[in-house]
Each structure stands twice: as structure tokens, then as C-alpha cells.
Design a protein around this nucleic acid. Sequence first.
DNA 1: CGGAAGATTGACGTCAGTCAAACTATGTGG
DNA 2: CCACATAGTTTGACTGACGTCAATCTTCCG
Lengths: 258, 258
Amino acid sequence: MSSQAQKGACLSLGKETRCMTCSLSSLCLPLSLNLEDIDQLDRIIKRRQPLKKGDHLFRQGDNFDSVYAVRSGSLKNYIMTNDGEEQITNFHLPSELVGLDGVDCSSYPVSSKALETTTVCEIPYSRLQNLAQELPDLRNQIFSSMSKEIRDDKQMMLLLSKKNAEERIATFLANLSSRFKRRGYSAYTFRLPMSRNEIGNYLGLAVETVSRVFTRFQTLQLIAVNGKEVHITDRQQLQQVAGVTECEIEQPSKLIAS
Amino acid sequence: MSSQAQKGACLSLGKETRCMTCSLSSLCLPLSLNLEDIDQLDRIIKRRQPLKKGDHLFRQGDNFDSVYAVRSGSLKNYIMTNDGEEQITNFHLPSELVGLDGVDCSSYPVSSKALETTTVCEIPYSRLQNLAQELPDLRNQIFSSMSKEIRDDKQMMLLLSKKNAEERIATFLANLSSRFKRRGYSAYTFRLPMSRNEIGNYLGLAVETVSRVFTRFQTLQLIAVNGKEVHITDRQQLQQVAGVTECEIEQPSKLIAS
DNA sequence: CGGAAGATTGACGTCAGTCAAACTATGTGG
DNA sequence: CCACATAGTTTGACTGACGTCAATCTTCCG
């Protein structure tokens, strides 16, 4: 099982990286934009130095001024409880938008941290706002992203409120699998960018429980795990444990004509 | 303890009810709009017959065409699990926007049901989209509402993932208290529009647990409960149990200059 | 190579769920 | 207006899934 961490990401980190040529454009903000509009969007985007593992993209309380699109690598977003514990609220994979929950705050309401070497496109929010004025498709794409995040959050509430440990982890793995697949990676073999601890934190479980369920799933021949490398042996069964019917796995967002 | 169900809602249900004269306008979409813009918004809004308790505003899967603002009464939103159970994802009070999680779907991803007699303002989404093109303040207000919903959802995840039964219920009561207060009702005495069952469902607890914690809180002199009438005796202590510092209670959204 | 962080496994305890029964409100029809 | 049915709430006894604690093992990096 080899890492596929770079496949599918943008080919180059140089100045010539552009939305137009980015392999993620069909999943990212440019989706549904015409070439001219993409060009306009492209012009306001700042390319950034890659973040190293553990670097913060931003911290809860930092001045809000940009949203970001993940280009390669991955991020975790988390909030702090009043007693200093962290609660991970999201893992972000390439093409996903980060920071939208701060658009009406002067500061980010969450922290965002790189799980591995990660590159992002920075989109200054004030300029995005202006552009959203001119480009209805872009505006709708932003609405769409936020709307999707809300829907995903509701699913997460359902998971946290109703599902047991096995269902949670099966759901988590099936979800990751789908997301990797959409991004051109294998749906069956991938590398978890996060630790067991972070998985547990995100799913509302103790690390030990995560570990135990992983072991149980291996005994049941649903998956094969080696450290962070995961191979899904029986995807259908895994989805069944997740409590999901096939059609629910991927629900690509459908745009309303603008 | 008397019900305060009608206080603060719009004065009249007749044709003359307008955003301009609505007592909720400072909490609702018109917030931050100038008079002219409010008038434009007002013209696309459809007033509706009140919903009776138990009526659906819309059902999961229904054609998405409008978002709604609650005018009086209250709603619960819920999703169905694959095995037919419901998971309540939100309770909506007057001035709150409902249906935003469907804007990039052809159908509503959740159901919305009246907890009591409830009136709403219907806002056809396609017309709202057009108006959002012309009115930057309105557009930002929509972004703002969605952004706030995402933030609330993250808090809810934290609650479901990290808090125990007492903390959950204290958080729930403190939150309701704040929301009633903002709407001009008493922060200390109010009527719960939902059943114990629905509270439990929302908070990821069994009905029995909700009941027991209510009893415990009464023993501790934090609250006094009589059926659905709640009086908060020791708000500070309640917030402490909720695990919230004072400043976190009310975080009115701040708009970025547009 | 060695230390630290992360992962696994086992033993045990506990918080909240389940089941069951009694009690209370709510609403309907005679 | 009462009688009755039904839904909702409360309380108690018991149970089980998952958390906690602790020890060991593995991986990762400098």
C-alpha cells in the first residue's frame, strides 16, 4: 500500500499555477464558471507557501480576511472548549473551502491546522465579495458551498447523536473513501492523514475505542489497516455498517439555474 | 407563569404586515438594509396562512423553491435516518431563517414541522437570488445567516461529542433563554415549545434522562419547571453547568463592511 | 540509535440507555 | 361537562457500551 498523497493535486507550485489549469477546478469554486469568470477569480487568488505539518492556517480569534481552498494535503478545523480541550469539527481535503464560517465575524471562529504538508489558495474575502457581485455563478457557488457544509454538519449531528462506535467509524471511513474517489484517488486504498486520536476526537469517541473498532473491522474482513494505510476490503458491508444506503454516499450538489 | 407566546411577534396577520413595520426586522433578513431595500425585499415576500401544530412547512425531498423566516411560533427541523428514526437538527424561533441548507439542491434535505401555531414569511429563492444581485447588504445578510448556522452547528457538535447530560441540558436552556431574551421575551420565564422527547432527540439523550436532569436541576434550585413552563432561578449557575463563560452567551453577528 | 509520541490491548467502572410501571396532561365525543 | 382514550412525563431497577486507567508495543524522527 503506497501513499497517494500527491496524485491529483496541482502539477506545479510555481507562479504559473492557475485555476484554469488546476486539476481540482471541477470540484472547487471555479465549478460552473465560464473561462472568463475563472480568469477573474484567478486574479484575486493569492498562492501561498506550503504549510508544514502542524502549522496553523489560521487560529480561532485571528482576524478574518480570507477564505481558503485546499490545493493539496489536508487540514483539520477545531474549536476550543472553555476548558481548553479541542473539538475537531472538520477535516478538509483538496478542493474544499475553508473559513466560510467566519464571513460575518471579524475573527475566525475556529482554528485550522495542517495535518501534513499542505498548500492552499488564499481568497481575500473582500475581493471575493466584490466579485460575487459581478458573477452570479460564483455567488451561487459560494452559497452552494455553505449550504453543503450545513448539510454535512446535520449529518454529523445525526452521527454523534444516534450512531454507535462501529457505525461512526464505518461512516467515517466510507465518507473518506467517497471523497478520495471524487478527487481521483482510490476509493479502496488510502492513507489517513490524521491520527487515531484525531479520529476519536472528531467522532466523539476515545482513542482506545477507535483502535478497538479498527481491530474488530479487520477481524470481520471489512478493512485491512497498517498504521495510517487503510485498505477497504468489503466496501458494501462497510457502508451497511455505516447505516447508509448506496445512493446516499455521494450527493454531488446540484446547482439551481441562476 | 403565563405563556408569552404572542408577545413580540408581528402585530397583525393581515395584508398590511410588512417588513417595514415588523418588530422582528432588526433580527431578521432586513437587518442592515436601508428603507428602500427593505421595501424591495418586502415585495417578494409571500405571507402565508398560519401553520397549525404538527403541520409541515416542507418535507425532506419536497421541491426546494423558497426559504422562510419564522414570524411567530416555532418549528423543528429534522432529518430521517435510514431506519426511519428522526433526528432533530434545529429548533427555529421567530426571525430565524429556515431552509438555507437546501439552496444548492433541487429538494429540501430536511423536514420542517410546526411545534405550535406558527406563521412564516415565504421568500421565493429565485427572486431572493435576483435581489441578492442588486443588494449587497442583503447578499451579505444571507451569507451571514448561513455562516452563523455553520458556527452554531459546530457548537452543537461539540455539545454532542464532549458534554454530558447535565451540560447538554444546561446549554440548551441557557441558549433558549438568550434567544428568547433577544426577541424581547423574558430570559427567565418561558414556555418550551417542544416536548421532552424532542429535547432528548435533539440533544442525543433518552427522554428519561431529560426528565431526570430536569428534576435534578430543580432539586439544585437552578430552575423551576411546571410542564412546559420553565423558570430559570439561577441563570449564572446554569451557565456554569453549561460550561460557558458569560461572554460566549450572546454573540451577535458582526457584519463586514460591504 | 534512542526518546517521545502514537497505537494497541486488557481490566474495570460509570453514565446514560432500556424496560417497565405509574402518573399527568390533553383532547375528543357523547 | 364529564368520561375516557391517548400521548406525554416521571421514577425506579437494571444493563451495557464506551470511557478511564494502566501497561506494553510500535512508529516516527532528530
